[in-house]
């Protein structure tokens, strides 16, 4: 059965599928030559209705590294959306030109609408504040590659835990693995939403604690996942200014951490990680970007049903 598959949420993949995907990504990383032409003749459409640097280029780079080609648009202004075309109509057209599509859209659920009308696989490359599944896959891949496992970790999540979609998705994805402990580090105003806390409470194998001081958390963490406080999520500029620099990871705080702790960040980084930390071997956020490309390569192969 060759049913058309899409990726809308990280939970669309079973743990087995996720592990297989990461295995493929790891194989690509260790032997990129072997995969250099597996997508010859294939076209990836990147339909980005809002600007993005890393995600769009990561998808394009992933396809180019496998011999495929890319086409698309980088903002709604340069697409037919500016003329009022619906998402459903746009994907019907794109389906005629490309073999697979990565879509970013400011409206939540837009890629799901596209998937319902598409004859090619659609990947959600971020839909507003809702889902960004390939970021979660990137995070999981980075953790597994650098720590060797996704189980038994103590993960510190720091910054905007209220609006940060990457944090919510990462928690939900890690909850499927054994004995993961979370330390939520945020100011009162940016605490994790109640529905995710409720979900955490239902998992007997997961532990969690909520604290305000980053220094207190540092010694117990295997992974520190920093996030940016996003201006666009605030209605009130005053609140944003007050909270944006609430946490700044610097060398002094890094001294409190374990030798083998790793620091991740979905990027872009603003002030929350001091530039001086970049030199620390535990700072892995730029390496994380590369894992993102490998996992996107593996995902494209999986959705195009190309087996090597």
């Amino acid at each position: 059965m060759n049913e058309l598959r899409h990726l809308m949420s990280p939970l669309d993949l079973s743990v087995e599928e996720l592990n297989a995907l990461m295995d493929t990504a790891e194989k690509i990383r260790s032997d990129p030559e072997r995969y250099a032409h597996v997508c010859d003749g294939k076209i990836l459409a990147t339909c980005f209705y809002e600007p993005s640097t890393r995600t769009r280029l990561s998808f394009e780079s992933a396809m180019l590294h496998m011999g495929g080609r890319t086409m698309g648009f980088a903002s709604a202004d340069s697409s037919s959306a500016a003329k009022g075309e619906s998402v459903a109509d746009t994907i019907r057209i794109i389906s005629c030109f490309a073999d697979i599509c990565a879509m970013r859209h400011p409206k939540e659920g837009a890629p799901m609408v596209a998937a319902a009308h598409s004859t090619i696989p659609v990947i959600n490359a971020g839909d507003g504040g809702h889902q960004h599944p390939t970021q979660t896959l990137t995070d999981l891949m980075t953790i597994r590659s650098l720590k060797g496992t996704l189980s038994g970790m103590t993960v510190g999540l720091c910054g905007d835990l209220k609006f940060g979609r990457t944090v919510h998705s990462l928690i939900q994805a890690l909850l499927r693995y054994e004995n993961v402990r979370f330390v939520m580090i945020s100011p009162e105003e940016l605490k994790l939403p109640g529905y995710i806390i409720e979900e955490l409470k239902t998992k007997p194998n997961a532990g969690f604690a909520e604290i305000t001081k980053l220094e207190e958390a540092m010694p117990m963490l295997d992974i520190l996942y920093m996030t940016r406080v996003q201006r666009e999520r605030f209605f009130n500029e005053e609140d944003y200014v007050r909270l944006k620099d609430f946490y700044i990871l610097d060398k002094k705080k890094m001294r409190l951490a374990k030798e083998d702790m790793i620091v991740l960040h979905p990027l872009p980084r603003v002030n929350e990680i001091a530039v001086e930390v970049d030199q620390d071997p535990r700072a892995k956020y730029f390496e994380q970007v590369k894992y993102g490309m490998y996992i996107r390569m593996a995902l494209i192969l999986m959705l195009l049903r190309i087996e090597i």
Partner: peptide, 8 residues
């Protein structure tokens, strides 16, 4: 912010 607010 939902797609239902604009998609015909």
């Amino acid at each position: 912010r939902c797609i239902t607010s604009i998609e015909q």
